[in-house]
Simulated scan of single mutants.
Amino acid sequence: MARTCRNCSAPRHFGNTPIGPSGRSPPARLALLPDAGHAVATVTYSIVALDPATGELGVAVQTRWLGVGALVPWLRPGVGAIATQSFVDTRYGFSGIELLAAGRTPQDALAELLAADSDPGVRQVGMVDAAGRSAAHTGADCVVAAGHLTGHGVTVQANMMERPTVWPAMLAAFEGTSGDLADRLVAALRAAEAEGGDVRGRQSAALVVVPGRADAHPWDIRYDIRIDDARAPLDELDRLLALNRGYEALDGAFEALAVGETAAALAFFERAAALAPDDDQIRLWQSLAVFDSGDEERGRRLYRSALAIEPRSGEHLRRFLAAGQLPGREKLVARLTDEG
Protein backbone atom coordinates (compact mmCIF):
# COMPACT_ATOMS: atom_id res chain seq x y z
CA MET A 1 0.00 0.00 0.00
CA ALA A 2 1.41 3.38 -0.97
CA ARG A 3 1.68 6.22 1.50
CA THR A 4 2.63 9.72 0.56
CA CYS A 5 3.65 12.64 2.71
CA ARG A 6 4.43 16.31 2.62
CA ASN A 7 8.21 16.40 3.00
CA CYS A 8 11.62 14.53 3.15
CA SER A 9 15.01 16.44 3.01
CA ALA A 10 18.12 17.91 4.73
CA PRO A 11 19.97 18.12 8.07
CA ARG A 12 18.52 17.59 11.48
CA HIS A 13 19.05 15.07 14.30
CA PHE A 14 21.67 12.92 12.63
CA GLY A 15 22.97 9.93 14.59
CA ASN A 16 26.59 9.80 15.66
CA THR A 17 29.06 8.28 13.21
CA PRO A 18 28.04 7.91 9.55
CA ILE A 19 28.37 4.18 9.21
CA GLY A 20 26.67 1.79 6.85
CA PRO A 21 26.82 -1.98 6.33
CA SER A 22 27.75 -4.08 9.33
CA GLY A 23 31.47 -4.22 9.92
CA ARG A 24 32.04 -0.45 10.13
CA SER A 25 32.71 1.33 13.41
CA PRO A 26 29.65 1.59 15.69
CA PRO A 27 28.46 4.88 17.14
CA ALA A 28 29.93 5.93 20.45
CA ARG A 29 26.62 5.35 22.19
CA LEU A 30 23.71 3.07 21.48
CA ALA A 31 20.83 5.19 22.74
CA LEU A 32 18.03 4.28 20.36
CA LEU A 33 17.72 7.74 18.89
CA PRO A 34 17.86 11.49 19.33
CA ASP A 35 19.76 14.04 21.09
CA ALA A 36 22.32 13.72 18.41
CA GLY A 37 24.10 16.83 17.10
CA HIS A 38 23.83 17.43 13.39
CA ALA A 39 21.94 15.71 10.59
CA VAL A 40 22.67 14.91 6.96
CA ALA A 41 20.12 15.19 4.22
CA THR A 42 19.85 12.33 1.78
CA VAL A 43 16.68 13.31 0.05
CA THR A 44 16.66 10.35 -2.21
CA TYR A 45 15.16 7.13 -3.47
CA SER A 46 16.11 3.63 -2.41
CA ILE A 47 15.06 0.00 -2.46
CA VAL A 48 15.58 -2.69 0.20
CA ALA A 49 15.00 -6.28 -0.82
CA LEU A 50 15.45 -9.99 -0.15
CA ASP A 51 16.05 -12.63 -2.81
CA PRO A 52 14.05 -15.57 -1.43
CA ALA A 53 15.82 -18.02 -3.74
CA THR A 54 19.32 -17.24 -2.45
CA GLY A 55 18.70 -15.48 0.85
CA GLU A 56 20.71 -12.48 -0.34
CA LEU A 57 19.71 -9.10 1.06
CA GLY A 58 20.38 -5.83 -0.70
CA VAL A 59 19.99 -2.07 -0.69
CA ALA A 60 20.35 0.25 -3.67
CA VAL A 61 20.12 4.03 -3.54
CA GLN A 62 20.73 7.17 -5.57
CA THR A 63 20.55 10.83 -4.56
CA ARG A 64 21.69 14.39 -5.27
CA TRP A 65 24.00 14.42 -2.26
CA LEU A 66 27.62 13.48 -1.70
CA GLY A 67 28.53 9.96 -0.55
CA VAL A 68 25.12 8.39 -0.03
CA GLY A 69 26.65 4.92 0.45
CA ALA A 70 28.14 5.93 3.81
CA LEU A 71 24.74 6.81 5.25
CA VAL A 72 21.72 5.02 3.83
CA PRO A 73 22.44 1.23 3.49
CA TRP A 74 22.72 -1.07 6.53
CA LEU A 75 22.80 -4.84 6.19
CA ARG A 76 23.71 -8.02 8.01
CA PRO A 77 23.61 -11.50 6.42
CA GLY A 78 20.83 -13.68 7.76
CA VAL A 79 19.32 -10.76 9.69
CA GLY A 80 18.03 -7.97 7.50
CA ALA A 81 18.60 -4.81 5.49
CA ILE A 82 17.65 -1.20 6.16
CA ALA A 83 17.66 2.08 4.25
CA THR A 84 17.51 5.24 6.38
CA GLN A 85 17.13 8.51 4.51
CA SER A 86 15.57 11.97 4.32
CA PHE A 87 16.97 13.86 7.35
CA VAL A 88 19.15 10.85 8.14
CA ASP A 89 19.53 9.41 11.60
CA THR A 90 21.93 6.52 11.12
CA ARG A 91 20.87 4.91 14.38
CA TYR A 92 17.79 3.69 12.52
CA GLY A 93 20.30 1.58 10.64
CA PHE A 94 22.63 0.52 13.43
CA SER A 95 20.02 0.00 16.15
CA GLY A 96 17.52 -1.33 13.62
CA ILE A 97 19.86 -4.16 12.62
CA GLU A 98 20.50 -4.91 16.30
CA LEU A 99 16.77 -5.09 16.98
CA LEU A 100 16.19 -7.41 14.00
CA ALA A 101 19.08 -9.60 15.18
CA ALA A 102 17.43 -9.77 18.60
CA GLY A 103 14.27 -11.19 17.04
CA ARG A 104 12.07 -8.14 16.49
CA THR A 105 9.97 -8.01 13.35
CA PRO A 106 10.62 -5.05 11.03
CA GLN A 107 7.28 -3.58 12.09
CA ASP A 108 8.14 -3.80 15.79
CA ALA A 109 11.72 -2.61 15.32
CA LEU A 110 10.61 0.40 13.28
CA ALA A 111 7.86 1.26 15.77
CA GLU A 112 10.35 1.15 18.65
CA LEU A 113 12.80 3.41 16.84
CA LEU A 114 10.11 5.90 15.83
CA ALA A 115 8.77 6.03 19.37
CA ALA A 116 12.23 7.01 20.62
CA ASP A 117 12.70 9.71 17.97
CA SER A 118 11.91 13.33 18.83
CA ASP A 119 11.44 14.18 15.14
CA PRO A 120 10.01 11.18 13.25
CA GLY A 121 8.26 13.42 10.74
CA VAL A 122 11.49 14.03 8.83
CA ARG A 123 12.57 10.38 8.67
CA GLN A 124 12.12 7.90 5.87
CA VAL A 125 13.06 4.27 6.51
CA GLY A 126 12.64 0.90 4.81
CA MET A 127 13.33 -2.45 6.50
CA VAL A 128 13.30 -6.06 5.30
CA ASP A 129 14.31 -9.05 7.40
CA ALA A 130 15.71 -12.40 6.33
CA ALA A 131 12.23 -13.94 6.48
CA GLY A 132 10.91 -11.43 3.95
CA ARG A 133 8.89 -9.35 6.38
CA SER A 134 8.96 -5.66 5.55
CA ALA A 135 8.11 -2.29 7.04
CA ALA A 136 8.53 1.31 5.99
CA HIS A 137 7.93 4.82 7.27
CA THR A 138 7.57 8.12 5.44
CA GLY A 139 7.33 11.00 7.88
CA ALA A 140 4.71 13.68 7.48
CA ASP A 141 7.37 16.36 7.03
CA CYS A 142 9.28 14.73 4.20
CA VAL A 143 9.84 16.84 1.08
CA VAL A 144 7.29 16.17 -1.67
CA ALA A 145 6.90 14.10 -3.67
CA ALA A 146 7.47 11.43 -1.05
CA GLY A 147 6.10 8.02 -0.23
CA HIS A 148 6.77 4.33 -0.07
CA LEU A 149 5.46 0.90 -0.99
CA THR A 150 6.05 -2.42 0.72
CA GLY A 151 5.66 -6.01 -0.36
CA HIS A 152 6.91 -9.40 0.72
CA GLY A 153 10.68 -9.06 0.84
CA VAL A 154 10.82 -5.55 -0.56
CA THR A 155 10.35 -1.87 0.30
CA VAL A 156 10.78 1.13 -1.98
CA GLN A 157 10.90 4.65 -0.59
CA ALA A 158 11.53 8.07 -2.09
CA ASN A 159 11.37 11.74 -1.19
CA MET A 160 11.89 15.04 -3.02
CA MET A 161 10.97 13.28 -6.25
CA GLU A 162 9.93 15.03 -9.44
CA ARG A 163 6.63 13.16 -9.38
CA PRO A 164 4.79 10.58 -7.21
CA THR A 165 5.13 7.87 -9.85
CA VAL A 166 8.75 7.23 -8.89
CA TRP A 167 8.36 4.64 -6.14
CA PRO A 168 5.55 2.67 -7.86
CA ALA A 169 7.78 2.45 -10.94
CA MET A 170 10.64 1.17 -8.79
CA LEU A 171 8.55 -1.63 -7.33
CA ALA A 172 7.17 -2.60 -10.74
CA ALA A 173 10.66 -2.72 -12.23
CA PHE A 174 12.02 -4.82 -9.37
CA GLU A 175 9.17 -7.30 -9.59
CA GLY A 176 9.25 -7.42 -13.40
CA THR A 177 13.00 -7.84 -13.91
CA SER A 178 14.80 -11.17 -14.17
CA GLY A 179 18.34 -11.79 -13.05
CA ASP A 180 20.00 -11.85 -9.68
CA LEU A 181 19.24 -9.47 -6.82
CA ALA A 182 21.80 -6.87 -7.90
CA ASP A 183 20.33 -6.73 -11.42
CA ARG A 184 16.82 -6.21 -10.04
CA LEU A 185 17.93 -3.52 -7.59
CA VAL A 186 19.67 -1.57 -10.34
CA ALA A 187 16.60 -1.93 -12.56
CA ALA A 188 14.56 -0.28 -9.81
CA LEU A 189 16.97 2.68 -9.71
CA ARG A 190 16.81 3.03 -13.49
CA ALA A 191 13.01 3.03 -13.32
CA ALA A 192 13.11 5.85 -10.76
CA GLU A 193 15.28 7.93 -13.07
CA ALA A 194 12.93 7.26 -15.98
CA GLU A 195 10.16 8.85 -13.90
CA GLY A 196 12.24 11.94 -13.19
CA GLY A 197 14.04 10.84 -10.04
CA ASP A 198 15.32 13.39 -7.54
CA VAL A 199 14.09 16.85 -8.50
CA ARG A 200 17.57 18.27 -7.75
CA GLY A 201 19.37 15.91 -10.13
CA ARG A 202 21.84 13.16 -9.32
CA GLN A 203 25.26 12.87 -7.63
CA SER A 204 25.92 9.63 -5.74
CA ALA A 205 24.70 6.06 -5.67
CA ALA A 206 25.37 2.82 -3.85
CA LEU A 207 24.61 -0.87 -4.12
CA VAL A 208 25.23 -3.25 -1.22
CA VAL A 209 24.38 -6.97 -1.33
CA VAL A 210 25.16 -9.46 1.43
CA PRO A 211 25.17 -13.24 0.99
CA GLY A 212 22.38 -15.57 2.02
CA ARG A 213 24.54 -18.57 2.82
CA ALA A 214 23.84 -20.29 6.12
CA ASP A 215 27.54 -20.06 7.01
CA ALA A 216 27.85 -16.33 6.21
CA HIS A 217 29.53 -14.18 8.84
CA PRO A 218 27.99 -10.88 10.00
CA TRP A 219 30.72 -8.99 8.15
CA ASP A 220 30.44 -10.87 4.83
CA ILE A 221 29.53 -8.73 1.81
CA ARG A 222 29.06 -9.75 -1.79
CA TYR A 223 28.95 -6.27 -3.32
CA ASP A 224 29.67 -2.92 -1.69
CA ILE A 225 29.75 -0.45 -4.56
CA ARG A 226 29.76 3.27 -4.01
CA ILE A 227 29.85 6.18 -6.39
CA ASP A 228 30.38 9.18 -4.13
CA ASP A 229 30.37 11.98 -6.70
CA ALA A 230 29.47 11.67 -10.38
CA ARG A 231 27.23 13.37 -12.90
CA ALA A 232 25.87 10.01 -14.04
CA PRO A 233 26.19 7.76 -10.97
CA LEU A 234 24.00 4.97 -12.34
CA ASP A 235 26.23 4.60 -15.39
CA GLU A 236 29.23 4.32 -13.07
CA LEU A 237 27.31 1.86 -10.90
CA ASP A 238 26.70 -0.34 -13.94
CA ARG A 239 30.41 -0.24 -14.80
CA LEU A 240 31.54 -1.10 -11.28
CA LEU A 241 28.97 -3.87 -10.92
CA ALA A 242 30.32 -5.48 -14.10
CA LEU A 243 33.86 -5.08 -12.75
CA ASN A 244 32.84 -6.68 -9.44
CA ARG A 245 31.32 -9.59 -11.35
CA GLY A 246 34.57 -9.89 -13.27
CA TYR A 247 36.53 -10.18 -10.04
CA GLU A 248 34.05 -12.74 -8.74
CA ALA A 249 34.85 -14.79 -11.84
CA LEU A 250 38.57 -14.23 -11.23
CA ASP A 251 38.15 -15.60 -7.70
CA GLY A 252 36.34 -18.59 -9.20
CA ALA A 253 39.28 -19.18 -11.53
CA PHE A 254 41.77 -19.14 -8.65
CA GLU A 255 39.60 -21.54 -6.64
CA ALA A 256 39.35 -23.92 -9.61
CA LEU A 257 43.11 -23.83 -10.17
CA ALA A 258 43.68 -24.60 -6.49
CA VAL A 259 41.90 -27.94 -6.89
CA GLY A 260 43.38 -28.77 -10.30
CA GLU A 261 40.27 -28.00 -12.39
CA THR A 262 42.05 -26.34 -15.30
CA ALA A 263 39.15 -26.36 -17.76
CA ALA A 264 36.83 -24.73 -15.23
CA ALA A 265 39.51 -22.18 -14.37
CA LEU A 266 39.98 -21.22 -18.02
CA ALA A 267 36.21 -20.78 -18.38
CA PHE A 268 36.17 -18.51 -15.32
CA PHE A 269 39.04 -16.48 -16.77
CA GLU A 270 37.14 -16.04 -20.04
CA ARG A 271 34.10 -14.79 -18.13
CA ALA A 272 36.21 -12.43 -16.05
CA ALA A 273 37.86 -10.98 -19.17
CA ALA A 274 34.49 -10.55 -20.91
CA LEU A 275 33.08 -8.66 -17.93
CA ALA A 276 36.16 -6.49 -17.46
CA PRO A 277 37.90 -6.35 -20.86
CA ASP A 278 40.11 -3.38 -19.93
CA ASP A 279 41.38 -4.76 -16.62
CA ASP A 280 45.09 -5.55 -16.98
CA GLN A 281 45.25 -7.58 -13.75
CA ILE A 282 42.58 -10.01 -14.93
CA ARG A 283 44.34 -10.22 -18.28
CA LEU A 284 47.69 -10.90 -16.59
CA TRP A 285 46.43 -13.85 -14.56
CA GLN A 286 44.51 -15.16 -17.55
CA SER A 287 47.72 -15.03 -19.60
CA LEU A 288 49.54 -17.23 -17.08
CA ALA A 289 46.74 -19.80 -17.02
CA VAL A 290 46.38 -19.88 -20.80
CA PHE A 291 50.15 -20.15 -21.25
CA ASP A 292 50.28 -22.98 -18.71
CA SER A 293 47.43 -24.81 -20.48
CA GLY A 294 49.60 -25.18 -23.58
CA ASP A 295 48.38 -22.25 -25.68
CA GLU A 296 51.63 -20.36 -25.37
CA GLU A 297 51.04 -18.05 -28.31
CA ARG A 298 47.74 -16.73 -26.92
CA GLY A 299 49.18 -16.62 -23.42
CA ARG A 300 51.99 -14.35 -24.60
CA ARG A 301 49.54 -12.12 -26.49
CA LEU A 302 47.46 -11.70 -23.35
CA TYR A 303 50.56 -11.02 -21.30
CA ARG A 304 51.80 -8.36 -23.71
CA SER A 305 48.41 -6.67 -23.74
CA ALA A 306 48.51 -6.53 -19.92
CA LEU A 307 52.08 -5.22 -20.10
CA ALA A 308 50.98 -2.46 -22.45
CA ILE A 309 48.57 -1.17 -19.81
CA GLU A 310 50.78 -1.79 -16.78
CA PRO A 311 54.52 -2.03 -17.55
CA ARG A 312 55.20 -3.67 -14.17
CA SER A 313 53.05 -6.72 -14.91
CA GLY A 314 56.05 -9.03 -15.10
CA GLU A 315 57.30 -7.79 -11.74
CA HIS A 316 53.80 -8.40 -10.39
CA LEU A 317 54.17 -12.12 -11.13
CA ARG A 318 57.76 -12.27 -9.93
CA ARG A 319 56.79 -10.74 -6.57
CA PHE A 320 54.14 -13.45 -6.15
CA LEU A 321 56.79 -16.06 -6.94
CA ALA A 322 59.17 -14.60 -4.36
CA ALA A 323 56.43 -14.69 -1.73
CA GLY A 324 55.87 -18.41 -2.35
CA GLN A 325 52.42 -17.89 -3.85
CA LEU A 326 53.20 -19.63 -7.17
CA PRO A 327 55.01 -22.79 -6.11
CA GLY A 328 56.65 -24.70 -8.94
CA ARG A 329 55.89 -21.97 -11.46
CA GLU A 330 59.32 -20.32 -11.61
CA LYS A 331 60.20 -21.55 -15.11
CA LEU A 332 56.68 -20.91 -16.36
CA VAL A 333 56.74 -17.29 -15.24
CA ALA A 334 60.26 -16.81 -16.61
CA ARG A 335 59.21 -18.10 -20.03
CA LEU A 336 56.00 -16.09 -20.13
CA THR A 337 57.67 -12.84 -19.14
CA ASP A 338 60.83 -13.28 -21.23
CA GLU A 339 61.02 -10.23 -23.47
CA GLY A 340 64.07 -11.47 -25.32
Rank of each mutant, 00 (worst) to 15 (best):
R239Y: 02
A232Q: 14
R239T: 07
F174W: 13
R190M: 01
A49M: 10
V59H: 01
H316Q: 07
R335L: 12
A187T: 01
R300S: 05
Y303F: 14
G139Q: 04
V156K: 02
G299F: 01
G324Y: 02
G15M: 11
E236G: 01
G23R: 06
A131I: 00
F14R: 10
A169M: 06
D180P: 00
E162N: 04
A323I: 08
R6N: 05
S134G: 00
Q107S: 12
G176H: 04
R24H: 15
T54C: 09
L240V: 10
L241C: 02
I282S: 06
L185I: 03
D117M: 11
A83G: 09
L114W: 05
G246C: 04
P164G: 04
G252C: 08
A28M: 13
P327M: 09
H13I: 10
D51P: 00
D215E: 15
A2M: 07
I47D: 00
L250C: 08
I309T: 11
A334L: 04
E195S: 05
A322N: 11
E255L: 10
Q203T: 06
H148N: 08
Y45R: 01
A31D: 12
D215S: 07
T337Q: 06
C5H: 10
A70S: 15
A216S: 15
E270V: 03
A101W: 13
L171S: 04
A272V: 03
D141Y: 15
P168M: 05
I19R: 14
A53L: 07
D235G: 09
P164D: 02
D108H: 07
A41L: 15
S305A: 08
L326G: 00
C8W: 12
L171A: 08
K331Y: 09
A53T: 04
P21M: 10
L75D: 07
D215F: 07
D278Y: 11
K331C: 07
A111D: 06
T262S: 15
L185G: 01
G179L: 05
A242I: 00
I47K: 05
A191F: 12
G328C: 08
P11Y: 14
M170P: 02
A28L: 15
A232D: 13
G299Y: 00
A249G: 04
E339C: 04
I282E: 03
Q85A: 06
A188L: 01
L57P: 04
H38I: 11
R64V: 11
D117S: 01
W285Q: 05
S25Q: 15
A36I: 13
E261A: 09
G294N: 08
G212A: 00
S118P: 14
G314I: 09
A10K: 14
V143I: 12
L207C: 01
A232Y: 15
G126E: 02
V199T: 08
A173H: 00
Q124H: 02
A258D: 13
V122I: 13
L66R: 09
R271V: 06
V209P: 01
R329D: 12
A230Q: 11
G197M: 03
L207S: 00
T17P: 03
S9W: 14
